[in-house]
């Protein structure tokens, strides 16, 4: 198989097979290498975060604990939902839809966070 044969005219079954296998292998190798780079990037970022938190000055003494510890969420409560770029109204709709699709009452579900996927 040579470049000239690939760019001009038709290919025999052998050359066609080699071109196809080579192409698939190149895509695989390329993305495996990229995966390694992304893993390294994640580790480097995690390392930076750990170093930053280790070198940060200690927090001021925590305020005195409240006299009455807050009670755990009641069984079946929705808990405290953290919303990321989601208005309250949409969050309520999403929770209602999920409850409907799962066939469970809303008060038996606990939502931890809702984030808009952009």
């Amino acid at each position: 198989m040579n470049t000239l044969a690939l760019t001009a005219g038709r290919l025999g079954i052998g050359d066609a097979g080699i071109a196809a296998v080579l192409g698939y292998a190149v895509v695989f190798v390329g993305l495996v290498l990229l995966m390694c780079v992304v893993i390294l990037m994640g580790k480097a970022m995690a390392g930076t975060r750990n170093n930053a938190s280790a070198s940060a000055p200690p927090q001021a003494a925590a305020p005195a604990a409240p006299a009455v510890p807050s009670a755990p969420p009641a069984p079946g409560s929705a808990g405290e939902v953290k919303l990321f770029d989601v208005p309250d109204k949409e969050a309520a709709m999403i929770m209602a839809i999920v409850a409907d699709k799962m066939g469970k009452p809303l008060n038996e579900l606990r939502f931890k966070s809702i984030k808009e996927v952009k």
Binding site: G17, F28, L31, M35, I39
Partner: peptide
């Protein structure tokens, strides 16, 4: 990041169809 393996695997059709077309 292992998702990239699936993105690579799903290019099978590109090269299979290319082979068939040849």
């Amino acid at each position: 990041p292992s998702s990239l393996l699936l993105g690579a695997a799903a290019q099978l059709g590109v090269f299979f169809a290319m082979f068939g077309a040849m």
